[in-house]
C-alpha cells in the first residue's frame, strides 16, 4: 500500500532522514517509536508530502507520489492525518469542521455530509458536540473530532503524528480508545507515538527509528521483549 525506497530529507545542514526503506501493507498498524529528533515525524510527514523528500521514492497504491505532475491533493485525499496539536479549524463548528472537505472535494450533498458527520461523531462518542466550536472542547475531545474529520474523507490510510502528546494524562485514554477501534475496523495506520502500551497492544508492527534510519522493525513482542539492536535496548530501558 505504501512503499518507501531510500528516503532522504534534510533541513538546511541537518540530515533528518538518511535512507529509509519501508513497506506498509494494507490493514497493518505500524507504530513508529524512537527518541526525539530521530526523524519519526518527518518520516510521517513525508508520506503525505507535507515535507518534500530530497531523495528517494514513495509509492502509494503503486503510484509514485513524489514525482512532478502528480496531483498531490488527490493523493492526500486517500490519507488522513491527525496532528499533535489537533489543528481543528477554530472558526467553524465541529460539524462544519467535519463536512468541509467532503462537501468541497467530493461534492457530497449537504444532507448526506451531515448524516455522515453525525455517524462519525457517534463513533468518536461526541454526538452532543455537533454545534460546538473547537474552543469549547477539551483536548481529548478536540483530538477525537480531528480523527472524525480525517475519516470523513474515507481515507485508505490514517497517519497519526504524536496524537496524544499534547493531551493531559487523563484524556489520553479516550483518544487511544478511538484509535484502537479504528485499528480493529481494519484501517491501515501509521502512528508516531510515545505510548508504548498502545504500541504493544494494537500495533501489528513496531518500527524503531534513530538518527534518521530504521534500526529495528518487528512485532511488538520482538521489539519490546527481545530487542536486538543495542540502541533499541537503551531506548526501551529508559521509557518502559
Amino acid at each position: 500500500m505504501i512503499k518507501v525506497n531510500n528516503l532522504h530529507k534534510s533541513f538546511g545542514k541537518l540530515n533528518v532522514l538518511n535512507g529509509i526503506d519501508e513497506h506498509i501493507k494494507p490493514g497493518e498498524v505500524v507504530v513508529v517509536i524512537g527518541p526525539s529528533g530521530s526523524g519519526k515525524s518527518t518520516f510521517l510527514r513525508c508520506l503525505n508530502l507535507l515535507e518534500k523528500p530530497d531523495k528517494g521514492e514513495i509509492y502509494v497504491d503503486d503510484q509514485l507520489i513524489n514525482a512532478p505532475k502528480v496531483d498531490v491533493n488527490k493523493v492526500r485525499q486517500k490519507m488522513g492525518m491527525v496532528f499533535q496539536h489537533f489543528n481543528l479549524f477554530p472558526h467553524l463548528t465541529v460539524m462544519r469542521n467535519i463536512i468541509l472537505a467532503p462537501m468541497k472535494l467530493k461534492k457530497m450533498p449537504k444532507e448526506e455530509a451531515l448524516a455522515k458527520g453525525r455517524e462519525l461523531l457517534k463513533t468518536v462518542g461526541l454526538s452532543d458536540k455537533e454545534k460546538s466550536y473547537p474552543v469549547q472542547l477539551s483536548g481529548g475531545q478536540k483530538q477525537r473530532i480531528a480523527i472524525a474529520r480525517s475519516l470523513a474523507m474515507e481515507p485508505e490510510i490514517m497517519l497519526f503524528d504524536e496524537p496524544t502528546s499534547a493531551l493531559d494524562p487523563e484524556m489520553v485514554g479516550e483518544v487511544l480508545d478511538v484509535m484502537k477501534n479504528l485499528a480493529k475496523s481494519g484501517m491501515t495506520m501509521v502512528v508516531v507515538t510515545h505510548e508504548m502500551g498502545f504500541a504493544r497492544e494494537v500495533a501489528t508492527r513496531v518500527i524503531f527509528m534513530d538518527g534518521g534510519v530504521v534500526l529495528e522493525s518487528g512485532t511488538p513482542e520482538e521489539i519490546f521483549d527481545h530487542p536486538q539492536n543495542p540502541r533499541t535496548k537503551l531506548f526501551l530501558s529508559k521509557v518502559l
Binding site: N48, L50, R76, Q77, G80, N87, S150
Partner: peptide, 17 residues
C-alpha cells in the same frame, strides 16, 4: 498558525481552497 494550512492541505484541499 501553520498547522491550519497543514490540516487543510492534508485533507486534500489545494492551496487556494
Amino acid at each position: 498558525d501553520k498547522g491550519q494550512t497543514e490540516a487543510g492541505r492534508s485533507l486534500g484541499l489545494n492551496g487556494i481552497q
